[in-house]
Nucleic acid binder design. Structure first.
Length: 571
RNA sequence: GGACCCGUCGCCUAGCACGGAUAGGGCUCCGGAUUUCUAAUCCGGCUGUCGUGGGUUCGAAUCCCACCGGGUCCGCCA
């Protein structure tokens, strides 16, 4: 029994299609599609054959329906201009549950693939706390990483730490010249909140203090000319802030396998190597150098890719190239998850690679921004919702719900449930939307606990666990008894899971799994309503339903896990 | 100005790369369901010019063209 029952069914259905086309004697090819649920598993629209056969589609469908169909199909039905391939319910149930049983807890995952994937995401500048606008990056990317792993690919999740540049130096200058009293108390006693106060105060001071401004300008100059001690000191500040950011991400369930520090690439000479390599390809303008990318579909300023200033110092573009050359050595496929504001930047990077004669290029997944009803989030204008605030609020709200629903539980247990419900609600609400669609952040939507939400999925999982707890030791059931319409609909969803995961991973479409999971949970709830498990009519049916609930539990758990959500035993 | 992205019930959203059967969900609102496995559930009802106009096709939310509205970018910043 294979790992992917749906793919196997589709393969058999494709063979039926081939047989139909042979019987009709057509050269025209028609596509097999998944059928509407009340019409079978797959269906074939015969309209494309009509022209070649010069016959009416219903007549063609009737002729096509005479072709025999293999197990577990029941046969072909002609309906108008369509031929539908229906499943024989008992055989279908046995087929699906057999597949699940063969993989057990790992059902949904595909065989290991050799292609190494390096997934870079978040990589937000280590100057302060993460806000909700940026939080879409880790939520989306972490789920993508989980789904890729489930689809069989070895994935390394990497954070590019930009501990280089003027912004970092300004912040460092603040920590050296300003006192905690001057910058004021942070909103939260956490490194990312503490250090951003220095950055904010420093930029404020430069507006009216010319001496201070000159001082930091001098520091930036020293930094850019390669002052090693200064570079290392600045990095220490970045490390502190990063620890705060990582703590927030950890609460979301997001972790990294590696970190790439930009300062390292400068100190160990990798950036200098890139400059030397680009020089022969470059044009010079006032002592600085750039690549001309105008033959790659770029126009105007966008076509001038400056990589070294007149004083010989590097630009972020140079370090970007150094970074991606390094990445290229460490993986087969590099995926970067980025805000849509980075689109042109990456077009330029890819063009630069081609100019260098490099065939390889990183792949990009872009997402649109999360904005507030009043407009764009802006740290400078103070119009932001920090990720930590959102999580705190979500968990507090979840806590109220738990207190209402489960007064029987201990305080500690209630807190645990509130945590995964609140955090899950936030993750799900962002993961469920197509990346390229912009999201307007509204509290009432982000904290939705019913309908299409994480708690809805988690609840279905807890329900399944509860039934299994009460069911006691497993008895052998007969899967061929699972012919109730709700059972068949549930089995159909379970069957599709491995394909859904693979398609989502390969298409980099995380939201597809969110939609699938919600659909699965809804169907499980309908099955729950119509099909008693513990009090099923016979031992054989009871055993089979217990097995179906267990299969549902595995799929719900793995779907939740793929989205980075906790699958609770109770809530 | 140019490039790229988005535009589907009152609100949010799926479907669009591979065109097919009455365009699925969720929220809101109204009305129901609990001697049975967790009611964060389920059922019923209301709600749609798929931005607009053309084109291709037996068939268009889906493909093509134009336009409208919104977003993002076009630094020797990162």
């Amino acid at each position: 029994m294979g790992h992917d029952p749906w793919a196997e069914l589709r393969e058999r259905a494709e063979a039926v299609r081939t047989a139909i086309e042979a019987r009709l004697g057509v050269r025209t090819h028609a596509d097999l599609v998944e059928a509407p649920e009340d019409k079978g598993l797959f269906s074939l629209a015969v309209f494309p054959y009509a022209k070649e056969l010069r016959k009416a589609p219903p007549a063609i469908a009737a002729e096509a329906a005479l072709v025999p169909a293999p197990e577990p199909f029941a046969g072909l039905q002609a309906v108008g201009g369509y031929v539908n391939l229906t499943a024989e319910p008992a055989a279908f149930a046995a087929h699906v549950l057999g597949s699940v049983a063969s993989l057990g807890e790992a059902y949904g995952s595909s065989p290991a693939q050799p292609m190494r994937i390096l997934l870079e995401h978040t990589s937000t500048n280590p100057t302060g706390p993460l806000h909700v606008g940026r939080a879409r990056n880790p939520i989306l990317a972490d789920a993508l990483g989980r789904l890729l792993k489930m689809a069989g690919y070895p994935v390394t999740r990497e954070y590019l730490v930009n501990d280089v540049g003027r912004q970092m130096v300004v912040q460092y200058w603040g920590t050296r010249h300003l006192t905690p009293a001057q910058v004021g108390p942070p909103d939260v006693d956490k490194a990312d909140y503490r250090f951003i106060k220095y950055y904010q105060k420093a930029t404020e001071i430069f507006e009216h203090d010319a001496a201070a401004k000159a001082d930091v300008a001098e520091m930036i100059r020293r930094f850019e000319l390669g002052d090693v001690a200064l570079t290392k000191d600045v990095r220490k500040v970045a490390e502190e802030v990063l620890s705060g950011i990582l703590a927030s991400l950890a609460r979301l369930g997001v972790a990294f396998d590696s970190f790439y520090w930009e300062s390292d690439s400068i100190l160990d000479g990798r950036v200098q190597e890139v400059i030397e390599r680009l020089m022969p390809l470059s044009h010079e303008e006032g002592g600085s150098h750039y690549l001309d990318l105008s033959s790659f579909g770029l126009e105007g300023d966008a076509a001038k890719y400056f990589f070294v200033r007149a004083d010989g110092t590097s630009l972020y573009t140079t370090r970007d190239i150094a970074y991606h050359l390094d990445k290229m050595r460490r993986c087969d496929v590099a995926i970067n998850v980025l805000g849509e504001d980075q689109k042109l930047t990456f077009d330029r990077l890819k063009a630069a690679f081609r100019l260098m004669g490099i065939e390889w290029a990183p792949e990009t997944v872009f997402y649109a921004f999360v904005s507030l009803p009043e407009g764009k989030m802006s740290t400078r204008r103070g119009v932001v919702v920090n990720l930590d605030d959102l999580l705190d609020e979500a968990v507090a709200r979840a806590g109220e719900e738990v207190a209402k629903r489960r007064p029987d539980l201990s305080e500690g247990r209630k807190r645990e449930i509130a945590e995964f419900v609140g955090v899950g609600a936030v993750r799900y609400n962002i993961a469920r939307v197509q990346a390229e669609k912009r999201i307007v952040f509204r509290w009432e939507e982000a904290l939705n606990f019913e309908g299409n939400s994480a708690p809805f999925l988690q609840y279905a999982h807890a329900r399944a666990c509860s039934i299994l707890d009460r069911a006691g030791p497993r008895t052998t059931g007969d899967p061929r008894l699972l012919v109730h319409p709700q059972e068949q609909l549930l089995l159909r969803r379970i069957a599709r899971f491995p394909s859904v995961v693979r398609d989502a991973a390969l298409g980099r479409r995380v939201h597809a799994v969110a939609g699938y999971a919600a659909d699965l949970a809804a169907q499980f709830n309908q099955f729950y309503r119509d099909c008693p498990v513990l009090n099923a009519g016979s031992e054989g049916l009871r055993g089979a339903r217990v097995e179906l609930v267990d299969a549902s539990r595995v799929v719900l758990r793995n779907a939740l896990d793929g989205l980075g959500l906790v699958a609770p035993r109770e809530m």
